[in-house]
Amino acid sequence: MGRMHQPGLGIFPVWLGKSRIMNTNTSSVNVPQAAYGWQRILLATAFIYPVWLLMVGTFDPAELSIGLIIAVLTAWLSKPHLHILDAIKWHPAIALYVLVYVGVFLWALLRSNLDVAARVLSPRLPINPAIVEVETHLRSDLGKLLLANCITLTPGTLTVDVFADRLQIHWIDSTPGRDMTHATASIAAQFEYYLSKFIK
């Protein structure tokens, strides 16, 4: 059933590239609205359908077809928000970058947990918190969302708020007197590098 859409998947890079040049928003001029909405829904369905498959855990034809209907319906209902998907940079190696990003993310999660565990268990409770601001080069909402999520799960940092070009971060270990701008830049830099490979 999914095979029917396979030729369509190949054209995603093209239309997304076009939309990037035209700086697409909902009130774009000579582009037929339906075309954009339609392809976004298809892409969202491709994200939602696997969730259904994981939930039912079978390949029963009845479940597969009902799942497809529900996935399309869910994507259609969330249409007003689907423009965030335009931020994905499509290129052949995208799967590789996503995998590397997930690996970095899980490693940071592990380190952050050990870090928090050590702080909690230490009798003196060695914390030195402050709220700092970090600049980001990611411009899209989706990119900033993923970066904020990453920072929240990194050792000792918690995203408090997101502005146009910077993130407000609660930092558990900000030793007074250290070079703050330099130290804070390193919080986001690593994730930003990997994220910028596949998201604007």
């Binding site: 999660l109 952050s112 947990n113 928090v116 565990a117 702080r119 909690v120 914390i127 918190p129 709220i131 929240t152 799960l153 000792g156 918690l158 408090v160 609660h170 558990i172």
Partner: peptide, 12 residues
Amino acid sequence: YNRIQAGTKATT
């Protein structure tokens, strides 16, 4: 804020 940090990360 520190409670959020501990409460979220370790439990995740």
